[in-house]
Design a protein around this nucleic acid. Structure first.
Length: 459
RNA sequence: GUGGAUGUAGCUCAGUUGGUUAGAGCGCCGGAUUGUGGUUCCGGAGGUCGCCGGUUCAAGCCCGGUCUUCCACCCCA
């Protein structure tokens, strides 16, 4: 007796209904991407391990799924590493991983994109706008809204430093979530402001500690944030220096005025403020999304250098972000192409799915497949139904003929279970009269029409 | 990676201080109705109690390990 089959932790199968809903999300996002002039690319599920390591911070490296070398992976391990292990010495796991694995599953779509740009630069026209919707993998511990395999939908523009790109991406967020009917808050910040804050506080070298502590503000409160900063070795003077940040409130205009006063001494901060201001002014009136400046927004401090974005659902219980993004000034530099600034965003399709499902935002008919089912009475009757079935399909209507001459009860139950709204019955009586009986399963009404009237009836 | 819960029929869950053949609702299959689903009535199938080991005369229940899902931390889509 075989064991119950199962799939790896944090991965999922998708049923037809689930796939329909996922496709609805993807179609919506893709439609907006294309309307903004982004073009699709795809990259392999696997990248070389060295392409990925060191791009996502220490934490990120740990979460990369590595692919064991095929054949005898042990054979290829460097002799000195083997010797060290044999001698009982400790070998750094990352080092050992690199010895045993030369490939890894992609962790996001941005780094593979940077690699793609460097590798294909001769064939690209800059500024290059691409979108990409593919799964990524992270060896994280699964939780609600957190999967080990999930779908990201990215749009990036590379080769332009213009803030108009940031403005466009804000509007793109707005368009997608307006189309999906989901209320969201788009949070905006700039890494230059965070750098400026650390400068003004007198401890520029503590940016990372200050910022990661600040990032938790809405979760743990001001006191805990200040305590964490002290624990990380941020001076009391610096903690006090940051205090004005906690008193920021009001709309962007009010916040900007106070920030300008406070951060007047920092040139980077001034630049960040000017950038933020440009984005706020140019984004204009959004359709449904709420644009918000959030000085505590940090995001992975890996490759972002300018604006940073994050989107959270304003309804539903999922607290984590459903989109992220930002500007990176030199991501391609690591791969040998300098001076290529880019900015991009990423939609977390799986989290958007969870929120839409919880809040009941999926259109009702999104799961409907077949619109018309022909009942099968046997070979002779089926042969009469077949040409009609073709006509219906030619007319663009999803239709099927039940494959077996099963009991009518079973065939109707099949239609009911699949949510098929119309059932066409063509038995000997109908065939003799040149008609077809069509039942609307939602109303229970049944009427006989001429075969040439069938299409207009179910359309 | 750290800490904590969880797992019983296809699904949602009961199951007494450890004590005979482990239950319900929904779903599924068949019939009432050999040309009609969704409502009603009748009948039926389906479980090595996540997996492995231990304690015991006896384990769904106690103990250890392991896997899954979930929660908090960390981090993030």
């Amino acid at each position: 007796m075989a064991q119950k089959p199962s799939i790896p932790k944090g991965t999922r199968d998708f049923s037809p209904v689930e796939m329909r809903r996922r496709q609805y999300i993807l179609d919506t996002i893709r439609g907006v991407f294309e309307r903004y002039g982004y073009l699709p690319i795809e990259t392999p599920a696997m990248e070389k391990l060295e392409t990925l390591t060191g791009k996502y911070g220490e934490e990120g490296d740990r979460l990369i799924f590595k692919v064991l070398n095929s054949g005898d992976a042990w054979d290829k391990v460097a002799p000195e590493v083997k010797q060290a292990l044999a001698a009982g010495e400790e070998v750094h796991p990352g080092k050992l991983g690199a010895e045993l694995c030369e490939k890894a599953l992609r962790y996001d779509l941005t780094v593979p994109f940077a690699r793609f740009v460097v590798q294909h630069q001769h064939a690209l026209t800059f500024p290059f706008k691409r979108y990409q919707m593919q799964p990524v993998w992270r060896a994280d511990r699964p939780q609600k809204g957190r999967y080990r395999e999930f779908l990201q939908c990215d749009a990036d523009v590379i080769g332009s430093t213009s803030l108009l790109n940031e403005v466009e991406l804000v509007q793109l967020f707005d368009d997608v979530f307006t189309a999906l009917g989901l209320a969201v808050v788009v949070k905006l910040n700039d890494r230059k402001l965070l750098t400026g804050i650390a400068e003004v506080s007198g401890q520029p070298e503590k940016v990372v500690d200050i910022v990661t502590a600040l990032d938790k503000l809405d979760k743990v409160g001001r006191e805990a944030v200040e305590q964490e900063m002290r624990d990380k070795g941020v001076s009391e003077a610096a903690v006090t220096g940051i205090a004005p940040l906690f008193e920021l409130h009001g709309n962007w205009d009010a916040q900007r005025t106070r920030l300008t006063e406070w951060l007047g001494g920092s040139e980077v901060a001034q630049q960040g403020l000017a950038d933020m201001d440009f984005i706020f002014q140019q984004a204009g009136q959004l359709k449904s999304a709420q644009l918000e400046f959030d000085p505590t927004l940090a995001r992975g401090l890996d490759y972002y250098t300018g604006a940073i974005f994050e989107v959270k659902a304003a309804e539903g219980t999922l607290q984590s972000s459903i989109c992220g993004g930002g500007r990176y000034d030199d991501l391609t530099g690591i791969f040998g192409l300098q001076g290529m600034s880019g900015v991009g965003i990423s939609f977390g399709a799986d989290r958007i799915y969870d929120v839409l499902l919880e809040t009941g935002k999926f259109p009702e008919d999104v799961a409907t497949g077949t619109r018309l089912l022909f009942v099968n009475f046997g070979d002779r009757e089926a042969a009469h139904a077949l040409p009609l079935l073709r006509q219906v399909r030619e007319a663009g209507i999803a239709a099927e003929l039940y494959p077996d001459a099963a009991k009518l009860k079973k065939q109707f139950a099949y239609a009911d279970a699949k949510g098929i709204p119309y059932v066409a019955t063509m038995g000997s009586e109908e065939i003799a009269q040149g008609i077809v009986s069509v039942k609307d399963l939602r109303s229970g009404e049944q009427r006989a029409v001429r075969t040439d009237e069938l299409i207009s009836l179910v359309q």
